[in-house]
Simulated scan of single mutants.
Amino acid sequence: MQIEKPVKTVEDTYTSSENIADILNQVATKEVTADKELGRFMLKSIISGFLLAIMAVFMLAVKTQFAGSNPGLINILGAIAFSIALIMIVLTKAELLTSNFMFFTVGLYYKTISLGKVIKIFLLCFLGNIIGGFILFGMMTGTKIMTPEMIAALTKTVTAKTIESTWLGIMIKGIFANFFINIGIFIALQCKEALAKAFFIGLGVVIFVFMAYEHVVYNAGLFAGMMFYNYDALSWIDVLKNIVFAFIGNYIGGGIFVGLVYAYLNGRRNDIVRS
């Protein structure tokens, strides 16, 4: 019996082309929203920052209330608690800067959006994310949710991320953080069931939080919290250092290592037909 050699084309190697098509569709939707409905785009960005900040508070509560237990157990519980934030953000289609790094880099690769417009959307999205964090912590000051133990844990975390960290360490950990976040989102795009999507989205977040990698929006939320609860402990030059290099690292990790790599693996730059 003779077996015929399988005949394949280059297009058969594009194993995640449906993901790329989905991403480009979302890029187009985000672009229209930012252009035509700026208020709604900003509100969706604020929601993302609010969700990250409220889950950061939840994580602080988990860690402080389990104090005295095995440190590894405390860290994994905190990471699982925080992962809920990104699951909510992605499934509600809110706008988060770090996931947009992947989406819009794919759009740039296929030339469906201009660089100038991408930069504008990034800045607007980041501004909205920061505002969301400020709103959350501003509201928290009207409650007793933030205990002295939680404030101490927040201060310790922020000090480690700013004063005790070098710019190179922040950038490399920023690469790792957004690589895991966006690879989780990219895998989740292939899933049809919401539970499966939530699992893969959450998995990437659990890894980055457990390993204490750097996420620029999460960090900005923590800095907002410090402004309300322990302003004097902030070193502003170190805060700026963290934001700048976490931003750069997050873009490399999510935009280049995931967005650009998988865009390249799933088509040529001129494959998109523009009318």
Rank of each mutant, 00 (worst) to 15 (best):
A94P: 00
A220H: 03
D22G: 02
T141H: 01
M227K: 05
Q26P: 00
E193P: 01
L240H: 04
A81S: 13
T64G: 10
L240G: 11
L195W: 11
D232A: 14
R269M: 15
A152Y: 03
N100Y: 07
F58T: 12
I256F: 14
A53I: 12
D35E: 10
K30M: 00
N178W: 03
K5H: 10
L96P: 04
A152D: 04
M150C: 07
K5G: 05
T29N: 07
L234H: 05
L97Y: 11
L234P: 11
L222W: 11
M59T: 11
T147D: 08
I163N: 06
A194S: 13
Q65T: 15
N75M: 14
M102R: 09
V27C: 05
I252Y: 09
S45T: 00
L265F: 14
V261G: 03
I131Q: 06
T13M: 15
T143D: 04
Q190D: 09
K161N: 12
T105E: 08
V32C: 01
I76F: 03
G138K: 02
L240P: 07
A212L: 07
T13S: 15
I23L: 00
T141I: 06
F245V: 06
I256S: 06
L77A: 13
F103E: 06
A160S: 13
A212V: 00
S48H: 10
I76Q: 08
T13F: 15
F50G: 09
I237L: 12
F134V: 06
G221N: 13
I172P: 11
Y218M: 10
I121G: 02
I207P: 08
V57R: 08
T29M: 03
V205S: 09
S17A: 03
F66W: 12
Q2I: 15
T112F: 00
F104R: 00
S235C: 06
I172Q: 09
G184R: 04
S165N: 10
A56W: 04
E4T: 15
N230Y: 02
Q2G: 15
G138Q: 05
M150V: 05
N25M: 02
A153G: 00
T147F: 00
L260Y: 07
V209Q: 05
G259T: 12
L168S: 09
F228Y: 15
N230P: 04
F257K: 08
K5Q: 12
T141L: 00
F103A: 09
F104Q: 01
V239L: 10
L222R: 11
G116C: 08
S275G: 09
K192H: 01
F180L: 14
G142K: 07
T64M: 13
T105W: 05
T64A: 10
T147G: 01
A246K: 11
G174W: 02
A212F: 02
K30H: 08
G249Y: 06
Y213H: 02
F58N: 15
V118Y: 10
F41E: 04
G116K: 10
K197H: 01
D35Y: 06
S16L: 09
V209W: 02
I47M: 14
M227C: 14
L97T: 08
V258D: 12
